[in-house]
Simulated assay, not measured.
Amino acid sequence: MAKHRIFGISFGSVYPHYITKAEKKGRTKEEVDEIIHWLTGYDDDGLGRVLEEKTDFETFFGEAPALNPARSEIKGVICGVRVEEIEDPLMQEIRYLDKLIDELARGKKMEKILRG
């Protein structure tokens, strides 16, 4: 069951780390939020609620208003694993987000990050 360890963690406990990673590389919280909006369909109010309610990752993705169908275009390695080969659907969603934040921190243009 170790592979499900992160699922009980609140999204809000990890969110500040996404922002810190982006800001260390000269990117912004607004860009992190734009990525989250694109991936999940949450708007600012919905994201605020998730953070306030300490929603866990499973609920965060399970109740996402509109998971972006273009997320399947996210390819590459994160944490030593190819995201397109992850079999657990929830872990794959988490790694999609990790990959997008990583691309932001690496200086990729937002239009490329959002597969536009």
Rank of each mutant, 00 (worst) to 15 (best):
E93D: 15
T28A: 02
G12C: 08
K21D: 08
E93Q: 15
P69H: 01
D43F: 06
A22D: 01
Q92M: 12
Q92I: 02
T59S: 06
Y18C: 06
R106P: 00
M110Q: 11
T55W: 01
H37Q: 14
G62E: 10
N68M: 08
I101F: 02
V32R: 02
L104F: 07
P89C: 10
D88K: 07
D33I: 13
E87Y: 02
K21A: 14
I35Y: 00
A105G: 15
R5G: 05
W38N: 11
E87K: 15
Y42W: 14
R71F: 06
T55Q: 06
T59A: 09
A66W: 00
F57R: 03
D88Y: 09
L51M: 07
R71I: 15
G80P: 05
H17F: 11
D44L: 07
W38Y: 14
A2M: 09
Y18G: 05
T59F: 00
E73P: 03
L104Y: 08
N68T: 04
F7Y: 15
C79G: 09
G8D: 12
K75P: 00
L51W: 01
V83C: 04
G26V: 11
E53I: 03
G116H: 11
G26Y: 05
F61N: 07
D88W: 06
M1N: 11
R106L: 13
D102G: 08
F7K: 07
V77R: 02
T28F: 00
I9M: 09
G8M: 04
A22C: 09
I36M: 07
E23Q: 15
I78L: 03
E63S: 13
F57C: 06
R5I: 04
C79F: 11
I9C: 04
A22Y: 04
L100S: 09
E84S: 09
G80T: 10
G48P: 06
E23H: 03
V50S: 07
E111L: 04
K75C: 03
E58Y: 03
E111Q: 12
K25G: 02
D43Y: 07
I35F: 04
A70E: 15
D88L: 10
R106N: 15
G41A: 10
I6M: 11
R106D: 14
S10G: 15
K54Y: 04
E23M: 14
D44Y: 05
D98C: 11
L104R: 10
H37L: 05
R115T: 13
V83F: 03
H17Q: 13
M91K: 14
D43A: 09
I19D: 00
F7C: 00
K54C: 06
D33S: 06
